[in-house]
């Protein structure tokens, strides 16, 4: 698949994994697993990039005597997610036309 396209889709997956509330790395991977299987090495750069783009914020909190990082979506991140959904709606309608049977 086109690398740029896939990258955009994975960004959206990660944002979607925290759109209903903050989460942490392993939980996000588990939530995405039924749909798309990511590894730490894929997730980590995406999280850093999205943090740099101010699409999410990170906080460190203690959990069972160790530190864990929690990621929360920002308004900018939510806007990015909405853009993604709108773009794909258009693409899907093109896809439906391309795969339609019997058009002239």
């Amino acid at each position: 698949m086109d690398i740029q396209l896939k990258r955009g889709m994975l960004d959206a997956c990660v944002l979607a994994a925290i759109q209903d509330g903050e989460s942490y790395g392993y939980q996000m991977l588990k939530d995405m697993k039924p749909y798309v299987e990511l590894s730490e090495s894929t997730l980590y750069p995406i999280l850093r990039r999205l943090e740099g783009a101010k699409c999410l914020t990170v906080r460190t909190a203690e959990h069972n005597g160790r530190l864990r990082k929690y990621y929360a979506i920002t308004p900018l991140g939510l806007a990015r997610l909405e853009d993604f959904k709108r773009e794909w709606k258009e693409l899907l309608s093109i896809y439906r036309f391309v795969t339609k049977e019997g058009h002239e």
Binding site: G25, Q27, L29, R66, L67, R68
Partner: peptide, 13 residues
């Protein structure tokens, strides 16, 4: 730290 956290979370799981 990111990789260590993920291993710890797997163990906890």
């Amino acid at each position: 730290a990111f990789y260590a956290e993920s291993i710890d979370d797997r163990i906890e799981d």
